[in-house]
Amino acid sequence: MDAWLLDPFLEFGFMRRALAGCLALSLGAAPIGVFLMLRNMSLAGDAIAHAILPGAAIGYMLAGLSLPAMTGGGLVAGLIVALVAGGVARMTQLREDASLSAVYLISLAGGVMIISLSGSGVDLMNVLFGNVLALDDPTLLLLAGIATVTVLALAIGYRALVLECADPAFLRSVSGASPFAHLGFLVLLVLNLVAGFHALGTLMAVGMMILPAASARLWHRDLGPLLATAVAMALTGSSGGLLLSYHFGLPSGPAIVLALGALYIGSLLASPVGGLVRRLRPRWHYTS
């Protein structure tokens, strides 16, 4: 069993790199996913992840498979979509989910069009599905940098972000930090989606955020343990997915997301906070 778990990482450098990439993604994306879920923005995260595509595609058109160009393009596109969708929702009758869907669909279609007109099908597959087994040094450094920035920013802005999610009106009444918390969170979200896009592709980047967050929510009612469990689940699921991918010759991105999905289903069945198995057991209660 030890050999099954450890040998792939001991023997192959690309597996160690993939594991390091997953660790970085878990530390950054999972806590962002928890706040995304608690703000009822899970689907918004998915939409923004898709919206990164045209930016990455334009970066690719200008500079080929260049990390800075594709990352910069993805960042700019993600931020524009997040801000435009928010602005449209505030200035028109459209709700934020509708405006976000509209903007991201335009963005996604534009991205696929740009890639199809300019490159081969292989490039499109790389952008859509990523390749965690081919992380080079600069990409790994980028993922580690984004994880570091995210953890530091969350530590600094934690109190404001919690208030912004739980009771935004209260935060606005006591402090001017509300717009900074909102905007800062969007920037962190886009940064982590860009990190996820390099490893898992634009289609599945958000999986590393939402699946661990949703699984952890089934185990905890307190935010602190919820964040810690989400990170642990992201790391467990992603390294498990890497191992499955290695041993059974599966595509790595989908294997990681499916492993995270298995943890989610397991949590649905076994969790103490509304899990299905618990509902079948005899119920007892306290006297007061």
Binding site: V162, D167, A169, R217
Partner: peptide, 10 residues
């Protein structure tokens, strides 16, 4: 209604 009663805080 301004407060999210489902938010996981004590």
């Amino acid at each position: 209604s301004a407060i999210d009663a489902g938010f996981p805080i004590t």
